[in-house]
Design a protein around this nucleic acid. Sequence first.
DNA 1: GTAACTGCAAAATATTTGCATCCTT
DNA 2: AAGGATGCAAATATTTTGCAGTTAC
Lengths: 138, 138
Amino acid sequence: MSTPVDIILKRNQLSITDSRKKILELFVNNSGALEHADIEKKTGEKFDRVTVYRTLQSFLEKGIIHTIPTSDNSVRYALCKDDCKEGHHHDNHVHFLCNECHTTMCLEDVTIPEVKLPVGFQPAEYQMVVSGTCKECR
Amino acid sequence: MSTPVDIILKRNQLSITDSRKKILELFVNNSGALEHADIEKKTGEKFDRVTVYRTLQSFLEKGIIHTIPTSDNSVRYALCKDDCKEGHHHDNHVHFLCNECHTTMCLEDVTIPEVKLPVGFQPAEYQMVVSGTCKECR
DNA sequence: GTAACTGCAAAATATTTGCATCCTT
DNA sequence: AAGGATGCAAATATTTTGCAGTTAC
């Protein structure tokens, strides 16, 4: 029988393997964003580092997850909402980075506002990250 | 006599050295943002890689430059405007990343709009990056 | 059975640290 | 002269690549 995770994988034409299931489960069960190191820790080093890289890469390509821009060197990933099409994302929500617990989370309900760009600039994608103190840490 | 670059360094209590002058000049003369590799290239590998790291680090600490968040693994740096105080930045402008020429630039005149966060979230800093096609590449 | 995925080894890159020497003030 | 900055060597950490063995379909 198919778990929710299996369904996501099938829908994206990815074969259902152990690593993909476990890593995708992490995203489904965690509301926050994960970085590469988190995933290695949370899977209990069950998978090869290389497999994690490749799994994340294929999830990205299929539009199952998206990256969250940060000012430091750490790339973070989070689940995309269902309406993400392959190669074209609609994650126009704001991301929040907590300075206390260092969690990155998607504020799905907060839409990135429009901005008026100078003449000649053709926007394609908007990203917005707000940092501060989250709900839990106040 | 003091060059503009010397003045910036003095104002920030940094001793005036070759590497600092050359690297800071790069930022002053380039409107766009630079990443570590750019700096090594543009200085013609004149300085040790380690020196570049440390120079950027000290500029960051003094608030002479700021980082621009990206979704890939590359950190980019750009000059701060004069009103940047040490440790506390006022770079509340939008950054633009061109998908054609891959230049990152500061849109100093475009202010990041306010967003209404869910109850309980305490914002401290806002970052916004728009990607697309820039003025030059259309 | 075949194509795709994984794990291991290793290469290529990127970043950090310690220390002796040199330069700025 | 003194403190800070640099360059070199080397330790760490991160990411990529090739390939042989394994697994999903």
